[in-house]
């Protein structure tokens, strides 16, 4: 059996009366790239935040690496620090690139944070940014810096919330390359939320299709693309879904 790094059982997230997310069952395997696809407002980001424990579920349990958490139980810092998220906006701090990338390392009191940051930037082909400041780089570069900032932490789980939604096609390509490289080099589990099914096809091993907060279908990417079981999945991937 494949090693499950996440198991979600009957996870429901309510905001007041509204149910943003309702997953009866979902498994995420260690080391895979899982795509979360669906139309806007289908609860993709909510799910991602639940996985990161940034939000806590109203009902149900999330089992991370064998540890069970319901909506109220305390998640220890050591566990929270094993996962990290890159948002749609890079949200860099007002300081140098090095300080930005080194930020998470400094939080954890690691040694030589800046030198590790510099090394990673060079390895990822972002040598030119090593001496730059957050105020004088392009948006595309900033988003890659945000990615580097996450990667330098060597997280067990890398969560990406529409990472290329705001980027032009060139930068989309560069960033996707980075993500694939990260997968190869670190072996981290990657969960990507994207509204771009083609991107999902390029990056992901498996996909879960969400509609109105519920999972409609889960399965290997190619399967969902060529012979999905649910008609709604077919409609969405085919671009025929009206919503």
């Amino acid at each position: 059996m494949k090693d499950k790094i996440y198991i979600l059982k009957d996870v429901i997230k309510n905001y007041g009366d509204k149910t943003a997310c309702h997953l009866s069952y979902l498994e995420i395997y260690r080391g895979e790239v899982l795509g979360i696809i669906g139309p806007s407002g289908s609860g993709k980001s909510t799910l991602l935040r639940l996985l990161n424990f940034l939000e806590r579920q109203t009902y149900g349990s999330i089992i991370f690496d064998g540890n069970t958490f319901d909506g109220k139980s305390h998640v220890p810092l050591t566990i929270r620090r094993r996962m990290t998220m890159v948002f749609q906006n890079p949200m860099l701090l007002k300081t140098s690139i090095l300080n930005n990338v080194a930020y998470g390392l400094k939080l954890r009191n690691m040694k030589y944070p800046k030198s590790e940051a510099a090394t990673l930037l060079r390895r990822l082909g972002m040598e030119s940014l090593v001496s730059a400041d957050a105020s004088n780089i392009s948006y595309g570069e900033a988003q890659r810096v945000a990615l580097a900032r996450a990667l330098v932490l060597r997280p067990d789980v890398l969560l990406l919330d529409e990472p290329t939604a705001n980027l032009d096609p060139y930068n989309v390509g560069v960033t996707e390359d980075l993500i694939l490289r990260a997968k190869e080099e670190s072996g981290a589990t990657i969960v990507v939320v994207t509204h771009n099914v083609f991107q999902a096809r390029r990056l992901c091993d498996r996909m879960v299709f969400l509609l109105d907060g519920k999972e409609v279908e889960v399965g290997p990417t190619e399967e969902l693309f060529t012979h999905a079981k649910d008609p709604r999945t077919i409609a969405f991937i085919g671009g025929d879904m009206v919503y």
Binding site: R49, N52, L54, L77, R80, R81, M83, T84, M85, F87, N89, M91, Y103, G104, L107, R108, R149, A150, L153, L159
Partner: peptide, 15 residues
Amino acid sequence: LNPEMRLQLQSLGAT
């Protein structure tokens, strides 16, 4: 400040 910034910092493991 950007309201998402707080979430980002949390996600990076900040107390």
